[in-house]
């Protein structure tokens, strides 16, 4: 967050939060300051962003509060981050693949 956003005064509650874009597998997605990565993906209609190792099953948000690790995603090259926790930042790069390990074998990440 930029220092301009730090405040103590309650009337900031009516101010519009900053809007920006993040990229998911190269696709630009709109985001609002304060949103988690998982929330940005959900707002874009994306329900899953990795597949499981054995059954190749699609996975996205499940517990939504940092407990289940279903929503793991690569954020700015850092693998295995919990999408439900990480706040979206301007220019952030999200990827359904793990660097060096090849793809998670994503199939059908979007459900239009």
């Amino acid at each position: 967050m930029s220092p301009a956003h730090q405040h103590d005064v309650p009337d900031d509650a009516t101010a519009e939060p900053e809007r920006f874009e993040v990229a998911f597998d190269g696709r630009p997605l709109p985001a609002t300051a304060g949103q988690s990565v998982g929330s940005v993906l959900t707002d874009a209609g994306i329900r899953s962003w990795r597949t499981t190792r054995t059954g190749h099953r699609p996975r996205g948000l499940f517990c939504g509060i940092g407990v289940c690790y279903d929503c793991l995603i690569t954020v700015d090259g850092e693998p295995n981050q919990r999408a439900c926790l990480v706040p979206a930042r301007p220019g952030m790069t999200l990827s359904s693949t793990v660097p060096g390990n090849g793809p998670f074998e994503t199939a059908g990440d979007t459900d239009d």
Partner: peptide, 22 residues
Amino acid sequence: DLPGVMAAGGVQALLKGHRTVA
């Protein structure tokens, strides 16, 4: 384990924390 199935608390967290409707 299908996407779109979530813990009730996770659905609530998206609403309360992000105004996102899952």
